[in-house]
Write a protein that binds this DNA or RNA. Structure first.
Lengths: 141, 141
DNA sequence: TTGAAACCATGGAGCCGCTACGGGGTCAAG
DNA sequence: CTTGACCCCGTAGCGGCTCCATGGTTTCAA
């Protein structure tokens, strides 16, 4: 399998594959006589694993640690639990702040209806008022 | 006002203030005889405006556009509405994907209870299964 | 057989929004 | 005269790619 085949099979960009190799996530494949990378089934599986973890928004460093566990199955898995727990906590924190942001933006958007000059734009007024530390629909607290 | 005073007044890091200047968001201030930056009230207000927009998670580029509107109040504000609408849409999309992620992580976490060897870790099994394209508690679709 | 298109290689820069670092100049108090 | 707090500038680093320039290789059709 050449790098383009692997890319097609996994939906991962060629440059990204090379990046994962440089980052130490994907083992260096063998080379054809002409220097082209020659991948095998194990690379495909490994890459699928990495992409699945990325779909779960795990940083590459966490994936590295998970791959260590795959390589050393006799180790304790407490760290894996912790990794997932921490990730979950961060996701929930981010959810909370995004929910707050959503309502702030919605309030801000409600300040301006149709097109008119920026001078009378409620959104801009709100933002400028906030810059003066005054009450602001999008930043009440 | 020197940069340290401005930093204290706004809660913005000194390096960040210089960065905003270099990025063209904060106008270049005058200088004292010794070369130190000399800020005035308008800089403080502008910086507060920027930070408020950043609190709303707007990218610097959007803030630049908003500042253009502040400077040219005769322009139509339709772009402002669009800017906020787009931001709102992105926030909502991110909320949806984070909500999905949360339940996936929770399902994943439920696969593994207490400490044991990684070989029997349900989380790792799920992730490896996913790499093979099999059904996966954290990635059902 | 030639030549174009599609593939592959490498190394390096760019993206965002900072943050940190290194190596210096300035200034007031003790 | 030294200490420390402040300021200057330029550069590099973070994560996770993405894009670029430059050049070699393969594959197909004319």
């Amino acid at each position: 399998m050449r790098i383009g085949d692997l890319a097609k099979a996994t939906g991962v960009d060629i440059e990204t594959i090379r990046y994962y190799e440089k980052a130490g996530l994907l083992p260096e494949p063998g080379r054809e006589a002409n220097g082209y990378r020659a991948y095998r089934q194990e690379h495909l599986e490994r890459l699928a694993f990495i992409r699945h973890c990325r779909a779960l928004d795990m940083p590459l460093e966490s994936i590295r640690r998970l791959l260590d566990f795959v390589a050393h199955p006799e180790a304790e898995c407490g760290d894996i639990n912790r990794l997932i727990d921490e990730k979950l906590a961060r996701v929930q924190a981010r959810l909370n702040s995004l929910r707050a942001l959503e309502s702030q933006l919605a309030a801000l958007r409600a300040q301006c209806g149709e097109n008119h000059s920026a001078r009378e734009c409620g959104i801009l007024h709100e933002l400028v008022a906030a810059a003066h530390g005054e009450a602001c629909a999008c930043h009440t607290k």
